[in-house]
Simulated assay, not measured.
Amino acid sequence: MTLLRHWGDTLGKWAGRPAARVQEDSGDPEVRRVREAAAAADWSTVREVLDARSESDDRTELLWAVGDTAGVERWIDKVVEAEPESALPRLVAGIRHISWGWDARTGARAKDVSRQQFEVFHARLRTAEQRLYEAADREPQWTSPWYGLQVTGRGLEVGQTLARRRFEAVVRRDPQHLASHQQQLQQVCEKWGGSHEEMHAFARSSAFGAPAGTHLGQLVAIAHLEHWLSLDSGPDAAYMSRSEVRASLAEAAEHSFRHPDFARRGGWIQVLNTFAMAFSLAGERDGARECFRATDGRVTKFPWYYLNGSDPAAAYRRQRASAGR
């Protein structure tokens, strides 16, 4: 994705602040390496990079770097055929078909998606499910196939019971898998057939059921942002300014990124961006400034695209300025 320079970045430099830029990944150099290898149909390098990582959130980011690369679908099936007993090419094929499926659907509202688009979307997700189940059969201890099945399940609308089983399959293998928890949080959102009550309960039980310093504290902030997003203008601001919402965010922050055991690895930048937005909307300027200092101008698309879908960095800059940072 091409990033545009904005005059606000220049002003930020003059003011002694780092320029805000959308960060496409965690900064791990292997992400770029595996993406370039995928674009070049270099399976040997793709395998080398993925094999070097354990089944965790770190590997999840690398898998999506491959899966989001256009053209992988043109060569990965040949690798699957050449390695009939190997799980990894099936996993990669599954993740690619998920991304490729959403390319066909687009990010439009369901009412604006054509019947033909939905047919292609569902066909690609069903292929993804087949490949992911094949990978899970070959590597029973891997989390990634089940995480991928969480994503396909939402697209295919498999229902809350099956979605929950897929989530539980991940956390049995990796109790603090952040991406899997994020997927399940979306699954229990009101917009996906859940409820605000279920969403908040899931977020809190996951965050506070994990050891202090956990990245899962982000779930509490996401839940409040999802609740805010569901409301009309006016009630949304009133919701975020509630004293119980501000207290909930502060409690989650203490248990998560403010704790000495919080590790700056994997998705930590997104965790801080999420709290930055939540604190900003809640009017908690001190908390927001703390997060803006920590992110140091590194912007993640989520959650800022909720405020500005075409330019998340602009939303970040605006809220940073409002916080006096």
Rank of each mutant, 00 (worst) to 15 (best):
R47A: 14
E48D: 15
V49G: 00
D51E: 15
D51V: 11
R53Q: 14
R53P: 03
S54Y: 12
S54V: 15
E55V: 02
E55A: 12
D58S: 13
D58M: 11
R59I: 09
T60I: 04
T60E: 11
W64G: 02
A65F: 01
V66T: 07
G67F: 04
D68H: 11
D68G: 14
T69E: 09
T69R: 10
A70Y: 09
A70C: 00
G71L: 02
R74C: 01
R74D: 14
R74W: 04
W75N: 09
W75A: 06
W75C: 03
I76A: 04
D77P: 02
V80T: 10
E81N: 05
E81P: 04
A82Q: 11
P84F: 09
P84C: 07
P84D: 04
E85V: 03
E85Y: 03
E85L: 14
S86A: 15
S86I: 02
A87Y: 10
L88S: 11
L88K: 07
L88C: 05
P89D: 09
R90H: 08
R90I: 00
V92R: 05
A93I: 02
G94I: 03
G94R: 06
I95Y: 12
I95S: 01
I95C: 03
R96V: 12
R96I: 00
H97C: 05
I98F: 00
S99W: 05
G101L: 06
G101N: 01
W102T: 01
